[in-house]
Design a protein around this nucleic acid. Sequence first.
DNA 1: TAGTGGTCTAGACCACTTC
DNA 2: AAGTGGTCTAGACCACTAA
Lengths: 241, 241
Amino acid sequence: MSDVLYLTIVSNLKQRIIKGEYKPGDTLDSETALMKKYNTTKMTIRKALSLLASKGFIYSIPGKGNYICKPETNIYSFNFNKYDKLNVQIDRIKLLSVNILNAIPSIYIKLQIPETESIIEITRLLFSNNKIIAYEKIYTQYIHKSPMVEDILKFANYIKLIEDEIAFAIEKQLKIEAVFPDEETKKHLKVSSNDIIYIIDEVIKNLDSKKVISYSQYFIKTKYLSITASQSFIKETKGIY
Amino acid sequence: MSDVLYLTIVSNLKQRIIKGEYKPGDTLDSETALMKKYNTTKMTIRKALSLLASKGFIYSIPGKGNYICKPETNIYSFNFNKYDKLNVQIDRIKLLSVNILNAIPSIYIKLQIPETESIIEITRLLFSNNKIIAYEKIYTQYIHKSPMVEDILKFANYIKLIEDEIAFAIEKQLKIEAVFPDEETKKHLKVSSNDIIYIIDEVIKNLDSKKVISYSQYFIKTKYLSITASQSFIKETKGIY
DNA sequence: TAGTGGTCTAGACCACTTC
DNA sequence: AAGTGGTCTAGACCACTAA
């Protein structure tokens, strides 16, 4: 119990929601009633309620009242980073190839650019303690002397480098699949047809323009990547954009 | 651009953050300065700033100022539900067995109960259009005539039934693994050693007491489950508990 | 028309940081 | 001492909902 009034109110209401005293769809006491109950003003009550709303516990309908949310129980979140959230620590990245590609329709579709543009393909191997951990292919529009391409070529962990600068400006999406390796992957990861690997497709978009910045495929042996996720009540993170 | 002042302020500041005009660690104009700039009062400025803070864009240090967050770029969220967020729609659940177990140490550890207690094991098959989609084993402490056990036995989608009532009171954690099926799974899912399946371990806890309510293992053919996740800026969802 | 939530004002007082 | 963020008050006015 905090000595700050609005936090006390938040804590009280939250407990009643968690204990099941209020059920989804139930209406809370009106703001006027809460003002009287806690002997305070509207702004303090509203501060408490807006905190509960931002955490996904309640929502309000103007003119009607504040209601208990139906909690979103199917959303899970997990931590993932190709370079430093694995079961091992990537300590070396080896550049395998850099190619200017044409005429690979599937990549043009992923990058959402016309086939008149050029695409640069970068392939790399990721090591930990001299063991091959993962193999990745990065595709991005080829723009002569663009800083990103330069960065990818020069630095191992390219996204980390620019991340601090542009992180709020980008949006990342992943698709994870468990498959048997194809010939190319078997060769690079030095695995057999009896191994299972994860393919992680990553699309990075500019949040503002919605344009695709890069598309990449990441191949990793299953034993190096654990997927553990925990439920998160937050419903909408994109409402603010 | 909204006609609501605090939303206009939010929108302005957000744009400057997304455009990279403000960088992580930078300090915002002081609240007094913003009051003058927007010709408004402290409470309105603070309402705007608290919205930005709740969305993970800024944080404040009392006595110093408001700062741009270092965005959390490694957190992804995805939607998952054993029964209705798959690539197919589960339309039938067949109860296979119900057993009272003793002496399986690994399960006692997962459920965090002493070995003097009894455990109930429920196994079920999930179907879609008469095709076997998944197999699951649910473990929970056996409490005679407890409503949960009754529900699991009586109803297919047991967690759905009690979800609305207790969702705010529980916390779910998943571990996803891609493996080759063992003999038991091969038999139930009717798959061969050349198939890849996902094993999803689920632990449900009471948020209040932190006690484990149930532990379950869910086996599904990879083709019926796609894992797609998108980056979420939200850092802390548990701060409120 | 009465009640509800939503926005906003113009102050007050506090604790903290910096100089 | 001056500036910063943090809490809180006591109103005002608005739009919406329901009887």
